[in-house]
Every structure is written in C-alpha cells, then in structure tokens.
Design a protein around this nucleic acid. Sequence first.
DNA 1: GTAAAATCTGAATCTGTTC
DNA 2: GGAACAGATTCAGATTTTA
Lengths: 384, 384
Amino acid sequence: MGVLKRIETAPLPLIPARPKLVVSVPHDLPVNQIIQDDCIAAMARLPDRSVDMIFADPPYNLQLGGDLYRPEGGRVDAVDDHWDKFETFAAYDRFTRDWLREARRILKDDGSIWVIGSYHNIFRVGAALQDEGYWILNDIVWRKANPMPNFKGTRFTNAHETMIWCAKSEKARYRFNYRVMKALNDDLQMRSDWSLPICSGAERLKDDDGHKAHPTQKPEALLYRVLLACTQPGDVVLDPFFGTGTTGAVAARLRRRWIGIERESAYVKVAEARIASTLPLDESAMVLMPEKRAAPRVAFGVIVELGHLAPGCVLTDAKRRWRAEVRADGTLLTEGAAAGSIHKIGAAVQGAPSCNGWTFWHYEEAGVLLPIDTLRQRHLAATA
Amino acid sequence: MGVLKRIETAPLPLIPARPKLVVSVPHDLPVNQIIQDDCIAAMARLPDRSVDMIFADPPYNLQLGGDLYRPEGGRVDAVDDHWDKFETFAAYDRFTRDWLREARRILKDDGSIWVIGSYHNIFRVGAALQDEGYWILNDIVWRKANPMPNFKGTRFTNAHETMIWCAKSEKARYRFNYRVMKALNDDLQMRSDWSLPICSGAERLKDDDGHKAHPTQKPEALLYRVLLACTQPGDVVLDPFFGTGTTGAVAARLRRRWIGIERESAYVKVAEARIASTLPLDESAMVLMPEKRAAPRVAFGVIVELGHLAPGCVLTDAKRRWRAEVRADGTLLTEGAAAGSIHKIGAAVQGAPSCNGWTFWHYEEAGVLLPIDTLRQRHLAATA
DNA sequence: GTAAAATCTGAATCTGTTC
DNA sequence: GGAACAGATTCAGATTTTA
C-alpha cells in the first residue's frame, strides 16, 4: 500500500459485530480516511475487488462562455475551477475511461457504481461505462426542486442532473435494497426520478470568508438514498472525487465505511472537519429519515396538451358572464384584452387583483357547466 | 429526388400565406408524405439544409442479428461477453453516427434536432451527437406519470425517458419559443423535466387483432410540446423513424409540415390512416404568446418627438435612487456623467454591464411611478 | 418581538442586429 | 469579422433587513 497523505482524524465508533455479516476487507484498506492525491494514482494503490460501492461525481467539463449576469444585474458565481477544464472531448474521454477502468478493478464483483453528471458530460460517461464492461441498471434523474433559472430565456431551465447506476458486468450480482427503497417512498416502488432540493442553507459548507467551500456540493439526501439503496452497514464506499466529503459524511451517519480521494488540500481540510463532527445514527433510527419532497405541479397547459380541452374551445365563468377562448399554448384570449394565463385573464375580466383560474373558468360537458379544476383533479387521479 | 414509395394520401389544408413568413423550401421536398425506405437511404435523397427540425426516436435494440447493425468486420464468434458487447456497441455507434450525419446535412443551419431514448442507447446517442458537431441545448426528461412497474423488484422503476435537444453547431442560431413554453407552464419558465402520461387508452393505436400497432408509440402530448417549443407554423419537421406517425399527426394538427421515413409497411399503413383523419387546429387557436423580440423596435426618441414625454422632465428608477433628465433628442442627462441612451445611462448609474432602460427608468403620471415602457406599449397598441 | 419585505444564491455550455 | 448598441431576461428557498 502506498503512502497515504492523510490518515483518519476522527475514528468513528466501530461497527458492532453483526452475526451474519461477513466483512472481507483487506486489513490494510485505508477505510474512513481521505487520500489526498490524483484519483487514478490513488486508486492504483488499492487492491483488486476491495470496495462494495463507488460513488463518483467527476468534473462535468462545463464549457462556459463569458460572465453571465442576472436580470437584476448580479453576476452568476460560476464554476470556473481549473479542475473542470479539459482541452477536448477526446481528452475528457481518456480521463473518464482511465478512472473508470481503475474503479472497476477495485470494485468487488458484486459491487456497484454510481456516477453523477449533467448533459455536458453524462453521455460520454455513460458510453464509457458501457464500453468498459459495466452493466447499466438504471439511470436516475435528480429533479431539483429549486434550480437556478435560465436568466436569458434561451433554453429550458436546466433543472436536473443524471446519475447512472451500474453493476460490474451483465451477469454480476449486485445489492438492491428493494424493501428499504419502497418503505422510503410511502410503500410505492422507488422510481428512477427523485425530487430533492439542491444543497443550500446550513448544509452548504462555507470557507472562512463565508464563500461556498466547494462550487458543486451535493445534498446529503441524495447520498442518503443512494447508500441506503445498494449498501449495507459495514460496507466500504469509495468516492474518488471526494470534494467536501458528502459521501463520507453520509456513509459515517449510516454506519458504512468510506474511502475518499481528493486532490485539493482545501477540500480535504473541509471534508475532514465535516466528517469528524458527524455522528452515526442510532440503529433504530436508520430505517427512515424525513425529507422534503416537492412533487411537480400541473399547469393548465398540460391539460390542453393532453387533449382534455381542445385549443379553440370556449370557457365561461359559472354565470356565463364572461367568455374566453383556449389557445394552443394554454393561454386564454378574451375580447378587448391581451392574452394570458387562466389566472390573469380571470382577474382581468373581473377587474380583480387576482383570481384562481381553476375554479373561475368553466367548460361544458354533457350539457353541464364544470370548473376546469375538474379536469385537473381527473388528471391527478389518473396519474397518481 | 429519388422514387418515393408512398405519396401524399390525404392532402392537408394549405398553410395560408403569412405576410412576413418567408418559407424557403425546395419545390421538390416531399412534405406531408411518408417515404417508405431505410432512413439513411431516404435521407440521402433529401437536399442539404432543407428541414427546420428533426425529431427522432431511433431503435435501441442492441441485439445483433438484424440487418441494421451488423458489424462491417464480419462475424465474431467464440469471443467472450465483453468483446461481443463491444462489437454490438460499435455497430450501434456506426449506425447512429451514419444517420446523425445525414440528418445534420439535411438540417437547416438554424434548425434543431431532438432524439429520444432510454439508458440502453441514449448515452451512445448523446456522445455521437457531440462528436458529429451538434451542440446540446438541453437534455429533457420525460417523467412518465404511469410507468410500468419493475415486477421483480430488482431495480428502480424505470419511470422516464430522455430527449436530447441540439442546435446544428455551437455558434448556430436556433428557434426557442420561450414565451410559448412559459405560457404553457402557468407563467413559469418551462423546466427540463416534463411530467406526462404514457401513450395509452384511445390514443394507443391497435392493429386488426387488437394488439398494439407499435411497441413504443409516443404520446402526442410529448410531440405537441416539442413542436410548440422550437418550430413555427409552416416549418418542415422530419422524423426519420416515423413508426405510427405521432410526429406527423401532431405536426398536422399544429399546422407544421412534415416528412416521415419508415421502413415497415405495416407502420406506414397505420400512420397514413392516422394522419389522414387528423384535423389542423383553428388558426385562432394557433396564435400564441408572441416573443418580445419580434415586436417592432421603437426608439425612445420617438416617444419624446411625439410629445408623450416632454424634454426637460425627470426620470427616476423605481426606488427613486437615481435621477436623469430627458433631452430633446431622446438622450438622458444625469449628474456626473455624459449624456447617452436610456440603456447606457441606466447601466452607468448602477455600475452594471447593461440595462434595459425601458423597464429601469420611470416617470410620474397621476402621482404614480410608471416605467417608460408603458409609453412604448401604448404607442405600439395605438399604431398596430 | 414579530411579521413583512428586501436581498442573496444555486454545476449555466444564457442575445440579436447593425455598422 | 469585429465592435457597438438596443434591449430582453429569474424561481425557490434561505437569509437579512426593515416596519
């Protein structure tokens, strides 16, 4: 085993002996430690088939132009760190294949790997995973409850990131804690899309100046679900792009062991302090953790898209005092007013400051006047 | 132009002449028709830069054996799984690159392409898109409201598919109907995750035996949103994997023109019947939220010339932090600065890189502070 | 002290036209 | 082709300031 730049600074409580759990870890595996080094070099010093799970958040290779300003004038604090710069796609691909190959050698035959990315890099990562012999089990969408908007109105709001979950090979066994995931999701099968808030507030680590310690810190809730899904207590989880140590912190909390690899000393320092102050959960508390969930809303436009209400049809209020025509983009058109949303036009015709368009506007069905909210409720019931 | 196996069976109503819309389509472009042929062969007969948008739902069957993906290097036998898999992926990659290259040649320089897939193929498609020179604008997650469960409980429910939206190149212009998308989403920016039900019920096409006519028929609502987002009436939309013609049906309904390519005669037959019975929406319903940039330009000087704002009057920002005086030539004068346009002076007083003077500067009318944009809107309405 | 309002921020490939 | 200029553009949540 090579020289480790950092050793364990805060020994975690030992995992209690568990009767049926056979843990076969080489005695010299540097668990619960951060290795400060290049990730490929550090992985090269780890033995074959030694870790149960790998979570990796590699550089995304964003290719940003100049500064971006918000409509009110502020400047966006972008990711402009040197570690995210690659000359070409080919260079990024080489880097990706190299670290994925080492990771696969280190992974136990029944282990699995998770890699997170955005559209800038995830397609290259996914193809490389397949080419290196990994077997994709799922792609998981992290739907952000509160993403940054698209300030210039040039594209769709980039509101998600993608994780790819792979077994070591097509025939390989892997662990999936189906029941745990189902319990975590109100007794419904856990789906491939997860709605979780971004990392902000008290959870977001700051440096001494009050600036964010790392530009891309992931929320603990994300790692919580990943680790609960496919590891068990005592398992060794490797994170080759450790950053501020979210993987390590959640692993410690969930009584998994961890190995972090991180090149930047500033991040290593933050991660060590963070994990040192993390307490493992009581065994009894390890089943469930409350979390914020933000389900997608239903827009009126969706009702139109789905054909529940045809563009061109006419809505009225309950007493048929006002009329408005539905347009293809889900806006309403009424006499002597600009087009707008069901709420805006409802307010406009009444001269009111606001209006709930869902209950104000009605449509006719089988000779009966029904609020358009009926259609929303029907849609919600059908898709629940 | 090569021989077309099928010609237009149900001529759609012609798109009425639109004064300011210049449609430059080669006279021999086979619009509103299905070409029954291999997609690459059929695309090879279409002229350069001739279609406005491409929507593609390519096959992702990775099994060798079909004519489509046979590796050029002959049969590979007695190889281990890994090599076999590599050959399979390599063959799929070649096929993908070939059709993406033809598609890019046919696409107008300011056109865009959408490709839909699942984790089986989308990563290879995404990497190929980047390698062929396309520029990814968004990856869009279609979150299925009612996916098929994972019966064996071995993985997460595969509850989404991914679409990749690309411009022809990094610097290329492209159409994005921002306002339309925002309207469709209750006046909030449309995000990269779309919740829509799968295609089922009456929409799902059946063959004579009552079996589903196509295994992967896409919901019309999905295409509805895609076409509304980045085309305008009269545009030509190409679908090289036409299947049962969802793209054509929605294009016809939304008064776009379309070209379908499909190899299987059974699908062609179903698609033809389907589109023949599709009615275009009323024109009135097709008038959508206009993009602001499309409005005619009004110089601030004209507002002054017309006497809507007298030279010498004073403008302030919404919070009365800064003041500026209107001069006869439509420039503003403020303390300690050279005179300049409403935008320049707005930016200067704030120390911002830019500023929209129309919304930044306000004037007083009947004791109320109003943005000078009010005067512009009034002028536009009066001269419309 | 509490409520309301203002401010700040997040993995972002973020403009279009004319001279 | 580059520079100059007009002018279009933000959502949710946490935090801080003001009333």
